[in-house]
Computed example of a mutant assay.
Amino acid sequence: MMIAAFARESRLSVDAVRLYVRRGLLHPEIGTKGGLRPYQIFSALDLEKARIIRAGQALGLPLKEIGVFINKRAFDGEEDDVVIAFLEEQRNRVTGRISELERLVSFVDAKIAWLKDPSIGASPPYPQ
């Protein structure tokens, strides 16, 4: 598929797709049409890589680290020990972030309750 269709399908902007191509995260084929500006043709494999990039960004990973992961992954359905360890590390990071966010939500709820009714006691302390 062409870049515009790929951007829509991957839910990325065209500029983001171009950036990922420049950074070597995506490797579209170059079509023969287009004269001076040949077309980039993206595959289903590129679409899978784009989804991995989006997931990595949602985890807060830098593009360089996402690229390392993509290059380690064979995309043949077989995950090696390095990829499994990487995914376990990311799961642990996300779990830690979830715990931190839950503490922040508890604080915000307590602060809202206190602001609505200061007679319930002292203002809740900010989380550490």
Rank of each mutant, 00 (worst) to 15 (best):
47 L>G: 02
3 I>G: 01
100 E>Y: 11
53 I>S: 01
52 I>K: 01
112 I>K: 04
86 F>A: 03
74 A>H: 14
126 Y>P: 11
56 G>D: 05
64 K>F: 02
89 E>F: 12
1 M>R: 05
65 E>Q: 15
83 V>S: 01
20 Y>F: 14
35 G>I: 11
55 A>V: 07
1 M>C: 10
83 V>Q: 06
84 I>M: 05
120 I>H: 01
51 R>E: 12
107 F>D: 00
105 V>W: 03
121 G>H: 10
55 A>W: 12
118 P>A: 07
56 G>T: 15
94 V>N: 01
46 D>W: 06
87 L>V: 09
60 G>K: 04
104 L>S: 03
32 T>Q: 11
93 R>T: 12
12 L>R: 02
74 A>F: 11
63 L>P: 05
118 P>R: 06
29 E>F: 11
4 A>K: 13
63 L>N: 01
24 G>V: 14
8 R>C: 07
64 K>T: 14
63 L>T: 11
70 I>G: 00
90 Q>I: 12
77 G>L: 09
66 I>V: 15
35 G>K: 09
8 R>M: 03
16 A>M: 14
58 A>G: 08
66 I>K: 00
123 S>T: 09
9 E>S: 09
104 L>F: 10
105 V>C: 05
128 Q>A: 09
94 V>D: 01
108 V>S: 02
14 V>D: 02
18 R>K: 12
90 Q>L: 07
91 R>A: 15
85 A>S: 12
23 R>E: 12
51 R>L: 10
64 K>H: 12
83 V>D: 00
80 D>F: 10
9 E>P: 04
128 Q>H: 13
60 G>M: 07
94 V>E: 02
115 L>Q: 06
82 V>G: 03
84 I>F: 00
44 A>F: 04
127 P>F: 03
98 I>M: 11
6 F>G: 01
